[in-house]
Amino acid sequence: MSRRVALFLLAFGVWSWIIWITFVKNLSASDQSWAPDGSATAFFYVHLVLAIVSFVLGTIIGVIGWRGLKARKKDLAGQRQ
């Protein structure tokens, strides 16, 4: 994997966490997320599942990028010897 691709994947993972943390904060503050009795609505659960899946995928993609950078660094160090 090229350094550029690894950095892109790592940046995507970080970006995904930043965006979805903000989304979940806004979701919890939304009037559509809560019924008048204070219980969570279907809107809340659907969007929470979407956020959780996005957290997982962002983490996986970021880890792939991180491992790509580490492997590339190790390969470059091995070539110098």
Rank of each mutant, 00 (worst) to 15 (best):
A35N: 15
V49A: 15
S16Y: 01
K73W: 02
A11S: 15
L48T: 01
L76A: 14
S39H: 14
S39C: 00
W34F: 06
V53R: 10
A6W: 00
R67K: 13
V56Y: 04
G68V: 09
I21R: 09
Y45S: 12
F8G: 04
L48C: 02
V63Q: 02
T59Q: 10
T22D: 09
D75Y: 05
T41V: 11
Q79D: 15
S54Y: 07
V63N: 01
V49W: 10
K73Q: 14
H47Y: 14
A40M: 12
L7F: 07
K74A: 14
W17H: 12
V24M: 10
G65E: 05
V5F: 02
K73T: 09
L50E: 11
I52D: 08
A77H: 06
R3W: 00
A29C: 01
S30F: 04
I21K: 06
A29H: 09
G13H: 03
I21C: 04
G38C: 02
I18D: 02
V46D: 10
K25F: 13
S33F: 08
F55T: 08
F8N: 00
W66I: 05
A11H: 07
H47P: 01
Y45E: 10
S33K: 06
K74R: 14
S28M: 10
R4M: 06
A29L: 12
W15F: 14
P36E: 14
D37Y: 10
S30A: 14
L27R: 04
L48V: 01
P36I: 13
N26F: 04
S2H: 04
G62H: 01
Q32G: 07
V14A: 14
G13L: 03
A51D: 11
K70Y: 02
D75I: 06
T41D: 05
F43Q: 03
L57H: 02
L57E: 09
M1V: 05
L50S: 08
L7I: 01
K74L: 07
I61T: 14
Q79E: 15
L50F: 11
W66V: 08
G78P: 00
W17Q: 13
W15L: 15
D75F: 08
F8L: 11
L76G: 00
I64K: 12
K70I: 10
G65Q: 07
G58N: 06
L69E: 08
W34M: 07
S39A: 13
T59F: 13
I21F: 10
S33G: 13
A42G: 10
L76F: 10
D31R: 11
A77T: 09
L76V: 04
S16A: 15
W66T: 09
D31P: 03
W15T: 12
I64L: 15
L7M: 06
W34C: 00
A6H: 02
A35V: 00
G65W: 05
K70D: 03
L27S: 03
L69P: 10
F43S: 03
A6N: 03
F23A: 06
K70L: 13
I60D: 01
F43L: 02
G38L: 05
Q32K: 14
G68K: 03
K73R: 14
L27E: 01
L76M: 13
I52W: 05
L69V: 11
V5T: 12
F23K: 08
W15M: 14
N26P: 01
F8S: 06
L9I: 03
G58K: 02
V56S: 08
V53A: 13
K70T: 11
A42R: 15
